[in-house]
Amino acid sequence: MIEEEEVTLLLNDLLEVYGYDFTQYARASIKRRINRLWTLDKFPSFAELRYRVRTDADYLKRFVEELTVNVTEMFRDPSFYRALRKEVLPALTAKPFIRVWHAGCSTGEEVFSMAILLKEANLLHKSLLYATDLNPEVLEVARKGIYALAPMRQYSENYVLSGGTADFSGYYTAQYDYVKFNEELTRKMVFSTHNLVSDRSFNEFDLILCRNVLIYFDKTLQDRVLTLFDESLGLLSFLGLGSKETLRFSGIRQKYKQVGSEKIWRKID
């Protein structure tokens, strides 16, 4: 088990040597991720782990990838997507152009879920989905739109629970153990690296989705990121967070009104 001071040393190394700033990540979680890597990669001591991280750029890639959590699924929390269908998309229908930002999109499953919603609301043709993440590797997966076949059954159930009435398997082509989502969906997506810790706002959006990303940040960083979102949202635009995340601790909360019982807020001031 890694000691608290060793976590600090390692995070400082990442910042000094590579410019990756994890110092404001939620400590208990990052510590667990480091321990997990220490065990997985069988380092005999902390010194060996630290040396490898400091000197081996290839290993660093793996280290950063594994430090961040890239678990995601399609239509996770179907009631959230049902609320997007019923409460959010109708409010965007009149717009000439719809910009959506998926911040911390990981391998892109939620971006495809959103594209399907927009398609079914007949809005995809005038929408653009900006999908960003810290890791170029996961963005590469998202860009290809190729996923394992196995979880599709679960995703299809989630899709139906979210209010989807089409045949979910019509959105992809299956080959062996993989599926590739239709290019009609990918054509409306733009992928780019963006670091919520250090990068700035890059556009104004009608909807920002950032689900189960803020849980990995401490309160100070959460507030910074929420301010960044606030600067990127026009009046009456929407912000969607993960089912256990909240605006409660943030300075921006007065400007937002929660939409129904889901974790969706609308900017009203």
């Binding site: 939620a26 400590r27 208990a28 979680s29 667990r32 991720r33 959590v69 678990v71 189960n212 849980i215 990995y216 993960g242 256990k244």
Partner: peptide, 13 residues
């Protein structure tokens, strides 16, 4: 998860 500052944090890993 439990944080040293006396708060909970969540993790969906």
């Amino acid at each position: 998860l439990i944080e040293h500052d006396g708060t909970f944090s969540l993790d969906d890993s």
